[in-house]
Amino acid sequence: MLRVRDLQVAYGPVIAVKNVSLDVASGAIVSLIGPNGAGKSSILNALSGVAPLKSGSIVFNGRDISRMSAHQRVSAGIAQAPEGRRVLAGMSVRENLELGGYRRPAKEVRENIGKMEEYFPVLRQKSKMAAGSLSGGEQQMLAIARGLMARPGLLLLDEPSLGLAPLVVRFIFEFLERLRDEGQTILLVEQNAREAMEISSYAYVIESGRIVVEGASRELRRDAAIERAYLGLA
């Protein structure tokens, strides 16, 4: 579904991502893990068209999207729930969802809001409240639901567990598995390596802008040396 080759991202002279190649198969959860500053968010943002792409190709559903603007990529089927959730704090929960469906017809948006409120009933209860007044966990649910409102073929998730209590993290990860079972393809960025490996089928480990290890999540989890070296799980 997604095929990235030799991706480079540079902020001025700083090259944040160097020759990264990765694939995401339809219906899978693929995780991207690595320490702070490794370049994980830069990769997702380059896929979304909001980080400066220096070179490389991004082929999504057979189309090269690397020259497309950010909004065209959303239309093409790539949506992101960004790091730190980035809900539109002054706008209501419902308005956030509506804007997630900005590129979809109005009728579909109404239907999808109903569906999101089924996934996350709290979003219905707090529909009229300012998104900024939600708790961290609720904001994360809103950010994911807002991404789903675009009906994306591929959902990019940047550290959904960031700063959340273990119970909430559990809930979010279980929800991601449910989404996958419903057929949603997900590219998941996480520092929470153990959980990410549990729900993903394939994983890439990024360090200083490069892929240092990749493989089936099950295999990587079994490899004690990799765990110690890259996942900090020892």
Partner: peptide, 24 residues
């Protein structure tokens, strides 16, 4: 209005607006 909401989204955060598919 749809455009009015998009304007408010851009007012809050241009990057977030772009991620949502709003032609900023």
């Amino acid at each position: 209005s749809r455009t009015g909401k998009a304007m408010r989204a851009v007012a809050e955060s241009e990057t977030t607006a772009r991620l949502l598919g709003i032609p900023v």
